[in-house]
Simulated assay, not measured.
Amino acid sequence: MPAYIAEEIALRIARGILHPNEHLVELAIAEEFKTSRAPVREALLMLEKDKLVQKVPHRGFVVKKFSKDEIHQLYDATFRLEEIAIQKAITNATQDDIERLEQILLDQESAIDNEDIVDFYELNEDFHAQILAIANNQFITDMHQSLRRSSRPLSFLNMGQGKNMLLSYQEHTKQFEAIKNKDVAAGVNAIREQEERSLKTLDIFYAI
């Protein structure tokens, strides 16, 4: 139950249903999920570990509001891991791996055509998870998953701006081509291009 509650709250934060600094009332959450407050408290502690919520004196848990510096540090760590992962994926990728990545890109095209940001976001996570799986380093995977959980609301916000879904798809296509052609330099450049574009968007919303 705690893991389920944590995931539901995380999704609401990612989709902007719950906003930065919004108070998370344990009793209300317990009533909604028809449980006691103990599983809710455990779920909130899980979210605190993922840096999606924080405990404030005399208020309890609130949705975390990131500072600009925190975002840059978070993205620096995330994208450095992705650079390592894509280099390992380029070495390890089989034809089946290539075909799975290609199918995710085709599904992303459909999500863009349908203007379905929720579907595109999930496919975005699938794309990165597939590259991590090909890289085949569990320590990198675990660290990356933790960072991606923390950045979910930022990623969702990012993708909803302007042409960012299309730009993200184009960046993923470059990463895919780099893996397919075993071009390490192109893969790293594509990762850095995505990082730069993402931070430019987020800097508009998080100026401090």
Rank of each mutant, 00 (worst) to 15 (best):
V56S: 10
V56D: 02
V56L: 09
H58P: 04
R59S: 07
F61V: 04
F61A: 01
V63S: 01
V63M: 01
K64T: 13
K65E: 09
K65Q: 08
S67K: 03
K68T: 11
D69P: 04
H72G: 02
H72W: 04
Q73T: 12
Q73A: 12
Y75L: 14
D76T: 14
D76N: 14
F79A: 12
F79I: 03
R80I: 15
L81V: 11
L81T: 11
I84K: 11
A85K: 05
I86F: 02
K88V: 04
K88Q: 15
K88R: 14
K88L: 14
T91V: 14
N92T: 06
A93C: 06
T94L: 08
Q95N: 13
Q95L: 14
D97R: 06
I98M: 14
I98R: 13
E99C: 02
R100K: 09
R100S: 10
R100G: 01
L101V: 02
L101S: 08
L101A: 08
E102I: 08
E102P: 00
Q103N: 12
I104S: 06
L105F: 01
L105Y: 00
L106M: 06
E109I: 03
E109C: 01
S110I: 10
S110W: 15
A111N: 05
D113W: 11
E115N: 12
D116Q: 00
D116S: 03
D116W: 00
V118Y: 08
V118F: 07
L123I: 02
L123E: 00
L123G: 07
N124K: 08
N124Q: 10
N124Y: 06
D126T: 02
D126C: 13
F127T: 02
F127H: 06
H128P: 09
L132V: 01
L132Q: 03
A133C: 06
A133N: 12
I134H: 05
I134G: 01
I134L: 03
A135G: 05
A135V: 00
N137D: 15
F139G: 08
F139L: 13
I140F: 10
I140Q: 03
M143H: 07
H144V: 00
Q145K: 10
Q145L: 13
S146A: 14
L147C: 04
S150G: 07
S151L: 14
R152A: 09
R152F: 10
R152T: 05
L154V: 04
L154D: 05
L157F: 00
L157N: 09
N158A: 05
N158M: 09
N158P: 09
M159H: 02
Q161K: 13
Q161Y: 11
Q161I: 11
G162W: 06
K163R: 14
L166G: 09
L167M: 15
S168E: 15
E171G: 14
H172G: 02
T173M: 09
T173E: 11
K174R: 13
K174A: 13
F176I: 07
F176K: 03
A178W: 13
